[in-house]
Amino acid sequence: MNLAYKIFWAFISLGVVTVWGLTLNGIVHKIFARVQGRLGPPVWQPFLDIIKNNSIRTAISHGVMFYLGPVFRIAGGIGTYMFIPVLFGSVYFSNFSMSGDVLLVMYFIFFGQLGMALGAGEGGHPYSAIAVSRGLAQMTAFEVPFALSVISLALQYKTLSITEIVAAQQGSFLNWTLFTNPLAVIAAMIAMLGMNMYNPFSLVIAPQEIPIGPPTEYQASFLGLLATNRGIFGGAKLVLFMNLYFGGATNLVELIVKTFWIYMLSVFVGAAYPRFRTEDSIRFFLKYPTALGIISVLLFSL
């Protein structure tokens, strides 16, 4: 497949994940509302919000880095997605996953976060910096169980390539990492709670104390980009988790079903729990999930 086709299909796949990711966001809000006994916004509300944000007539900018922050963020999201093979066995939905392995994806996740943190920093708002410091601190902690779980996978499948990890899980659902390496999956799923920043790990965006966290100063189309990224990045993370732990997907329906249920975990936890303080969540991540991760790594290295 030549490069033009590759890019073309990458755009298609990006479109799919954007739509699905945003729809998932809508569904989640609906679910939260139903849990609280409300009707909730329509499922397509995220799309409306994005249109609205892009239609804002005025905007302010604190500087070049502030301007580029959302671009970094969404580039991080798209890039992360671009390095993940979406559908197993499909040449069309493999994006640019040949450029690296799971380590690349894990580190590219930081690209957007770092850029966003810088943009928010130039905004000069203290809440942004506080939120970033909280977010980074929490990130260091939840990356530990996640890294351990990925290492455990690397030991189990003797590869870091996502495509090969998915390939190894094909056949029966019993081949999924979920069943072959449950400890690693548990550790990673707990880490995902932190990544998704729902309760109890929502201190980063804490809307009451430090309004919305890092994007406090962002508005208009900046916010639009960030909101779009929520769909893309969220989708990318779900696809990554699906590939690593839940046997990947061979068609779009499977993808949608699996990512939906993976997402539901953090949604259910988020709907049911109160919030940790930063140091508590650091301690939490470094205790139980890390222990699980270490056990799973040791099991596979012995």
């Binding site: 890039g79 040949m98 392995d101 380590l103 590869t159 870091l160 390539s161």
Partner: peptide
């Protein structure tokens, strides 16, 4: 262990 890294392509994609 298997793995790969194509720094050039990563740069272009980014």
């Amino acid at each position: 262990l298997k793995g790969n890294w194509n720094g050039n392509l990563v740069m272009l994609v980014t």
